[in-house]
Design a protein around this nucleic acid. Structure first.
Lengths: 189, 189
DNA sequence: GCAGTGATGGGACTTGGTCTCATCACTGTA
DNA sequence: TACAGTGATGAGACCAAGTCCCATCACTGC
């Protein structure tokens, strides 16, 4: 095996994504993944916490959202601050370059409950972080939590649309439209 | 071992809850749980899908919520229908009788990410079911999803308050107040 | 040329989870 | 009373996930 080739984590993630798509998540062992990446099982667990972790690398979403919300104009309301966060995600995470990877990753996650569980917890934690960031901007706790929840819904819908095969729009545009829709629905409730 | 004693599932769940509280989730093996319940490992997995499943028996929440929302008065708005659902939970699930068990269960879940993941996915699915139930009542999809999200937030907060040691109120009252608070915050967003 | 550093390989080990087969208690029937 | 059928259980083999330890390798600086 070729030791010391760089980007072990990326190779493992790519191998995992391929094998999950080819044979399914359940029928793919960690040894399989490591082998395709030219590495050993023990090395896999040095790079990722567990088998699922290979699809959930560093949590970059939270940091981007927190920073963008903290940096939103002072006069912006809570939902406007959330909109800044979503726009930042479009610039730094959900870029056209990363779209193919994101689409493949999402397709795999939809095939297995274990992966959906982790995704769900990530979503819950992300929403909590957004709420906390809004509170730090001076919003009332309850208002912040509601805004965070509405933002999470908008993000979820935007993410799904953006991953849709037919989609050609940039994430920021999809997200802006999604958030406006959620806002309108919220005032109709 | 005493075979054929009844209520195997309940005995396993009780044993698990005790052991998780005594030694922690990680330090408790399925064999330990089965042994305390006077059963074998293979029997454990006949009653529960996996180790985590012992804390997440039958999903009764979804059914109760769906039924209550479907049975809400026709003239009730979406949030009022959600309120009917929360009240039903107070009557059929979060009863005074079950409170001790629920409190202990919640305390254990908070100690381990694996359990939180499952809880998070259950929450996501529950929210989706509420949204679908509201759509079936005739609500617009977007409005239904927003109402479901707000209801989920209210439920989460009510659940936490109700589980609080100092609490003596009935769940329905806590939930009603929680939902009103969420509603007020939503109109302030 | 040599020691230090850090990533890797390899294998032993525990536990979660699946599967199969034998065993036991209870039931209905003759 | 005897006996076959049914369903839950016990026991154990087996595989994969995940942990741990130690030897090994490539690279760096001296």
């Amino acid at each position: 095996m070729a030791r010391w080739e760089p980007h072990a984590s990326e190779r493992l993630a790519e191998a995992a994504l391929e094998l999950f798509a080819e044979n399914g998540y359940e029928n793919t062992t960690v040894v399989d993944i490591a082998a395709r990446a030219g590495l050993a099982k023990s090395t896999f667990f040095r790079h990722f916490q567990d088998k699922r972790g290979v699809l959930f690398g560093e949590d970059v979403l939270t940091g981007v959202l927190r920073a963008a919300i903290a940096g939103a104009p002072e006069e912006a309301g809570v939902l406007e601050a959330v909109a800044c966060g979503l726009a930042a995600l479009g610039r730094e995470v959900f870029t056209a370059e990363r779209r193919p990877f994101t689409v493949r990753r999402r397709a795999v996650i939809e095939t297995h409950a274990d992966l959906q569980e982790r995704e769900a917890l990530k979503g819950v934690n992300l929403t909590a972080a957004v709420g906390a960031a809004l509170v730090e901007r001076g919003a009332e706790v309850m208002v912040a939590e509601v805004a965070a929840e509405l933002g999470a819904l908008a993000l979820k819908r935007a993410y799904e649309q953006w991953c849709d095969l037919a989609n050609t729009e940039e994430f920021a545009d999809v997200a802006r439209r999604s958030l406006d829709g959620v806002k309108a629905a919220a005032s109709a409730v």
